[in-house]
């Protein structure tokens, strides 16, 4: 990779350079992924199940370590700093947050406590916390009516909103969003992506979104990377990728 260093450092919020991730010291999940997320952009990470999308996101957020995996090669740079050896909670404090695949809300906690927990990392005063909660409720009015319900009892779409709202409480500059459309009705998917686009426009939040749903993702993203068996096999602007007719074939492994 020989991007002019000065240029990439200026434009890119996140740069992933040729990383390899190994689980349990033996299983290779990601082998040579490079990508970059420019400041203020929405970037899509596409690919079939098992292509390495989630692992790539976990490598970026540092959560791979919680699964007994490690980044064994390559460099991840965020805001110009190498993330090697930076633990997940520090990464969150630096403005990067990961919304996990399958939502992972705290089911036993109320919707509001779920959101609150996202604010802990910033050690907010009670006042600031309330103000920030209102901010989230403004984005997701539906959550306000359910604020005292245990999150585990809300619908799939609402749980996705809780997961995103909780992540937004950390005041991120970059959100790693893993499969937001999974298991949701098309209308809800649309609603969630609309909010993502709006957050991007109005708050300049950058997104790296892993998706199987190519069309929705590329509709909102400016750039896309296609992964297959742990490698980037294709990348380009969203328009370029959409113009190709063979994306689905790549998914099915018949290039």
């Amino acid at each position: 990779m020989s991007l002019p260093a000065s240029e990439s450092a200026h434009a890119a919020l996140l740069t992933v350079n040729d990383i390899e991730v190994i689980y349990d010291g033996a299983i290779l999940a990601v082998a040579g992924v490079s990508l970059s997320v420019p400041k203020g952009a929405i970037v899509a990470l596409l690919g079939a199940n098992g292509a390495g999308k989630s692992t790539t996101l976990k490598a970026i957020s540092g959560l791979v370590r919680a699964e007994r995996a490690e980044v064994s090669r390559g460099v991840i740079e965020y805001a110009g700093h190498d993330l090697a050896g930076v633990d997940p909670s520090q990464r969150v404090r630096q403005g990067m947050v990961h919304v996990l695949e399958g939502r992972h809300v705290f089911g036993q906690l109320t919707v509001e406590d779920n959101l609150r927990s996202g604010g802990f990392v910033r050690r907010l005063s009670r006042r600031a916390m309330e103000a920030d909660l209102e901010r989230i409720y403004a984005w997701f009015p539906r959550l306000k009516t359910k604020r005292h319900t245990r999150a585990g009892l809300t619908s799939g779409g609402e749980q996705q909103m809780v997961a995103i709202g909780r992540a937004l409480m950390t005041r991120p500059t970059l959100v790693l969003l893993d499969e937001p459309s999974m298991g949701l009705a098309p209308m809800i998917v649309q609603e969630i992506f609309e909010i993502v686009a709006q957050l991007n426009r109005e708050q300049q939040v950058s997104f790296l979104i892993a998706e199987q749903n190519i069309n929705v993702a590329l509709n909102y993203a400016s750039h896309g990377y296609v992964l297959d068996t742990g490698r980037v096999v294709l990348s380009g602007s969203a328009a370029e990728l959409l113009a190709r007719g063979d994306l689905h074939d790549i998914y099915l492994g018949k290039q």
Partner: peptide, 24 residues
Amino acid sequence: TRIGVSLRAVADDTTAALSIGINL
């Protein structure tokens, strides 16, 4: 308290707790 909610969050879903910066 913050510690209490964090503890319950960790008990509920450790990975999710890590993802929002709770220091395990």
